[in-house]
């Protein structure tokens, strides 16, 4: 498979803060890759490096066989501005035309149809709803007939219906052979769109696998109980003792509870809670760090 973009041992620091720490990643033609991670994990920094907005502190970033800093290389990519990013006094059609002017091929008509923008073409962006603006913003990524598009949090803040409409547009591009790298902190969004998921946390790649595998990986629960001591339990990712209670993070709470009961040790006040994605990442990041 052709590699469209890759990073080789890329590290990026901002002063004392390390945003990316030795990240190596390849994205192949025709893939739809989800980049998943909590806020501050390094997702946006990685995207910024890939589209040429930032330079790596060390390591190499390759885009379409060249450097993303080279404007002519960027003819092959499409990017979405952040949510509030569109100039409010321009009309939708003017904005699409303006962006399309930068590329050799103009796919405006196709994009208007694909993202349902026909009724909005003559409207000023300032008069659009948040969801409509988001649609225009995402559409801009596709207007120059890109080989690969980078979508940073494309549906943040959208209602379910608007989100699904955008997903359909992204899927249609992928079905035509387009390559997509999308970031999200919604597991659901990654599940709906991506085949391959890259999980980042603390500036490092924690997992790079199929959606199913990563779902198991991040689908962890918190088991907490009061007990004087704990037996050896299977599948514990993280253990914390606070105020006489143990708080365990595990990928398989059923097996853990069964093992706990079988051990015969006394315990009381057992609770099993789903963790948020955020907590799961923190737990995984913490164990990763302790292994280093």
């Amino acid at each position: 498979m052709t590699v469209l973009t890759r990073t080789i041992e890329v590290t990026r620091t901002y002063g004392d803060v390390t945003a990316l720490d030795g990240v190596s990643l390849e994205i192949h033609q025709g893939e739809l890759v989800g980049l998943l991670g909590p806020n501050g994990a390094g997702k946006s920094t990685l995207i910024n490096l890939l589209v040429g907005l930032r330079r790596p502190t060390s390591g190499t970033v390759e885009l379409l066989g060249g450097s993303p800093m080279d404007a002519s290389v960027r003819r092959g990519i499409g990017v979405t501005p952040q949510e509030t990013g569109l100039p409010t006094s321009l009309k939708v059609g003017e904005t699409l035309d303006f962006v399309a002017r930068h590329y050799p091929v103009n796919r405006k008509d196709e994009v208007v149809e694909r993202f349902g923008l026909a009724d909005l073409i003559k409207r000023q962006i300032g008069s659009l709803s948040g969801g409509q603006r988001r649609r225009v913003g995402v559409a801009l990524a596709f207007v120059g007939d890109p080989k690969i598009v980078f979508l940073d949090e494309p549906t943040t803040g959208l209602d379910v219906e608007a989100r699904r409409a955008l997903w359909d547009g992204i899927r249609a591009f992928h079905a035509d052979g387009g390559t997509v790298l999308l970031t999200s902190h919604y597991l659901e969004e990654i599940e709906a769109l991506a085949q391959r998921v890259v999980v980042v946390g603390g500036g490092r790649v924690l997992a790079d696998d199929t959606v199913q595998a990563v779902k198991r990986f991040v689908g962890v629960r918190k088991v907490s109980l009061a007990a004087p001591e704990l037996p050896d339990l299977p599948g514990v990712i993280d253990t914390e003792r606070r105020d006489g209670r143990y708080h365990l993070v595990t990928g398989d709470s059923d097996a853990l509870v069964v093992a706990l009961v079988k051990s015969g040790l006394p315990f009381e006040d057992l609770e099993v809670q789903p963790t948020s994605l955020e907590e799961a990442f923190l737990a995984i990041t913490a164990t990763e760090a302790s292994h280093v």
Binding site: V51, G52, L53, A71, S72, V73, R74, R75, I77, V79, T80, P81, Q82, E83, T84, G85, L86, P87, V99, H102, Y103, G144
Partner: peptide, 14 residues
Amino acid sequence: ELPWDPYLRTLPAG
């Protein structure tokens, strides 16, 4: 100060 500015930097123009 607007996100449109970095977005324009990603277009193939310089």
